[in-house]
């Protein structure tokens, strides 16, 4: 079973993203929730995860810092990260992609948004071009 981290300081956002994942057809996943980037990083250092879906604007450690930490940690560099953000202007989005974000989705997301982003990622992984 694939393991996914959903990170957002908002309980509603975490629940909503999880619900969209399920409605988007991704039901055989074990979802772990995290409130900020620090929690995500700690989880990643303990256990192997297949995907991180993270908000950008979080207290303690935001999405940018999380991506920086992941990219600087050799054993985590292959973990794909999808960013979900309420804002994220164009420059920020480009910076996130440069840092390695696989997709950037705008809130409010829909099941089809998440299905496409996660589906594209899984297809790429399975076919060797992630």
């Amino acid at each position: 079973m694939k393991k996914i981290i959903i990170a957002d300081d908002s309980s509603l956002a975490r629940m909503f993203t999880s619900r969209c994942l399920s409605a988007g057809g991704f039901r055989n996943y074990e979802v772990t929730e995290a409130k900020d980037g620090q929690e995500v990083f700690a989880l990643l250092m303990e256990t192997t995860y297949d995907l991180v879906i993270s908000d950008l604007n979080m207290p303690e450690m935001d999405g940018v810092e999380l991506m920086t930490r992941i990219s600087q940690t050799p054993q985590l560099q292959s973990v794909p990260v999808i960013i979900i953000t309420s804002a994220g202007n164009e420059d920020q989005r480009k910076a996130l992609v440069t840092m390695g974000a696989k997709a950037i989705l705008s809130k409010p997301i829909t099941p089809s948004d998440i299905a496409k982003a996660v589906g594209d990622l899984l297809d790429a992984e399975e076919n060797g071009y992630a």
Partner: peptide, 23 residues
């Protein structure tokens, strides 16, 4: 979360006029 999402949608819709923004 409501205001976060409303603000994001709104400012993204006028980003071409106001330029870079940070919530």
């Amino acid at each position: 979360e409501f205001i976060n999402t409303v603000a994001g949608i709104f400012f993204r819709s006028i980003e071409y006029e106001i330029g870079a923004f940070q919530l």
